[in-house]
Design a binder for these strands. Structure first.
Length: 352
DNA sequence: GGGCCCGCAGGG
DNA sequence: CCCTGCGGGCCC
C-alpha cells in the first residue's frame, strides 16, 4: 500500500519527467557514439584522454583513501565497469581501493601531489584555479572523482563545502547533486513510523538531463535558545526566486552560461557514483520553473512550492559513467522507458 | 542506522 | 562582522 505522500512524490516525479520531456530532453540528443554501439571500430579503447596520463602511477599521498595507490600501474583502465562484477556496492568499494578499474581521471582529484600533472591545487590544498569561473577548470577532466566535498572545493570545481549552488553574477558556476537536499519532497512514512520523515527526492536524473531542486524554504535556524544548526530540516515555507541560490540558477537559464555539475554518492540515480563526488562536466540550465512541484508538510495537506530547474548536458564531452543495471534494479526501477536511459542501458550492459 | 555538532567557504 | 548551506565525523 502506498501512502499519500509517496503518491504525491510519484506525481511530482511524473511532473518532472514531463518538464524534461516537454523540452525534448527525453530524446537521445547526446553523443551519437554513446547511442550506436554497433560501430565496433573506433569507439572502444581511447575515448578518455585521461588515459594519457596513465604513465604516472606515482600516487604519493592519497588524501584519505590511502589504498588507492599504484596497484593499477600498467593496466589500461576501462571506462566502465563490467556489469558482471558489479553486483554489490561492496565490490565497487574494494575495486576502488585497488583502483584497478578506475580511469586515471577518477583518481587525480584525490591526490595531493607536488607537480605531477595538471591538478586543481597544490600540495597544501591551496587552489591554483579560481572556482568563480564559468566553464571547465584547467586540468580537471570530466570524470574526476573526489572523496569529499572539501576536495572538490580545493580543486575549484565546486567551492562551497555544503551548499549545492555556487552563485555568480551571470548565473551559477557549479551545482552539486548530492542527494542530501530532497527539497522537492519530504514525506512522512505512514507505513513504518508515524513520525518518520523520509528524505526522498522527486528529482529525475536521466544523466544528460535532470531536474534540480532549488534552495530555501527550510528553517535551519531554530530558536535563539535552541538553534538547530543542522543541515537538514523539513520544508516549512515556499521557495522563491528571491533566494540567491535560486536566483542564480534562474539567471543561468537566461545567460545560458555553462554550469559545472558534480554528482554525489547519495543521489538516487543510476548516474551517481558509488562513492564520493564526481565531476560530470558542463550543463546548461534550460529552464527555471517556478512552483513546479510540491513538497508536503508533515501535517500533510499544505504543500510548499518549490523551484525546479531543468539541466541539459553540453555536447562533445566524455560519456557519462553509469551504474550497472543490476544495481539499478535494486535502487529503483524508475526511468526504465525513456530513450536516454535506453541508450545508456545498452551502454552499460554491452560488456557482457 | 539516527542524532548531534563542529567546521568551512561564500555572501551580505 | 554576521549569517547560511544537498558535510562529515563523532557518539550512541
Amino acid at each position: 500500500m502506498v501512502s499519500d505522500y509517496e503518491r504525491q512524490r510519484l506525481l511530482n516525479i511524473q511532473r518532472n519527467k514531463a518538464l524534461l520531456t516537454s523540452m525534448g530532453l527525453d530524446k537521445p540528443f547526446f553523443e551519437p557514439e554513446e547511442v550506436k554501439r554497433q560501430k565496433p571500430s573506433k569507439s572502444a579503447p581511447k575515448k578518455r584522454k585521461a588515459e594519457e596520463h596513465d604513465g604516472a602511477p606515482d600516487a604519493k599521498k592519497a588524501t584519505r583513501v590511502e589504498s588507492v595507490k599504484s596497484t593499477d600501474s600498467g593496466e589500461a583502465s576501462p571506462l566502465r565497469r563490467s556489469s558482471r562484477n558489479a553486483g554489490k556496492t561492496v565490490d565497487y568499494k574494494s575495486e576502488k581501493q585497488t583502483g584497478s578499474h578506475l580511469p586515471i581521471s577518477f583518481k587525480s582529484g584525490i591526490r595531493e601531489m607536488e607537480n605531477s600533472g595538471p591538478l586543481g591545487r597544490e600540495a597544501g590544498s591551496k587552489r591554483i584555479h579560481n572556482p568563480k569561473t564559468y566553464g571547465s577548470i584547467p586540468g580537471i577532466e570530466v570524470g574526476t572523482w573526489w572523496e569529499t566535498r572539501e576536495a572538490c572545493s580545493a580543486d575549484a570545481i565546486h567551492a562551497p563545502w555544503v551548499g549545492g549552488i555556487a552563485v555568480g553574477p551571470q548565473g551559477a558556476y557549479s551545482v552539486a547533486l548530492s542527494g542530501g537536499y530532497p527539497g522537492g519532497a519530504r514525506f512522512r512514512s505512514d507505513d513504518i513510523d508515524f513520525l518518520k520523515v523520509l528524505s526522498l527526492s522527486d528529482d529525475v536524473d536521466w544523466g544528460y538531463a535532470f531536474t534540480y531542486t532549488g534552495s530555501g524554504g527550510r528553517d535551519l535556524k531554530g530558536t535563539k535558545a535552541n538553534p538547530l544548526n543542522l543541515r537538514t530540516a523539513p520544508q516549512s515555507s515556499d521557495q522563491t526566486f528571491e533566494n540567491n541560490f535560486n536566483k542564480a540558477l534562474k539567471i543561468s537559464a537566461e545567460t545560458k552560461k555553462p554550469v559545472r555539475v558534480i554528482r554525489g554518492f547519495k543521489v538516487d540515480s543510476p548516474y551517481a557514483p558509488y562513492e564520493g563526488y564526481r565531476y560530470d562536466g558542463l550543463y546548461r540550465v534550460e529552464k527555471a520553473n517556478f512552483l513546479h512541484s510540491i513538497a508536503w508538510q508533515e501535517q500533510g495537506m499544505d504543500g510548499f512550492l518549490i523551484c525546479k530547474f531543468a539541466f541539459k548536458r553540453l555536447p562533445e564531452q566524455p560519456p557519462l559513467p553509469r551504474r550497472a543495471a543490476i544495481d539499478e534494479s535494486e535502487d529503483h526501477a524508475a526511468d526504465k522507458d525513456d530513450g536516454a536511459n535506453e541508450a545508456a542501458q545498452n551502454e552499460a550492459s554491452d560488456e557482457e
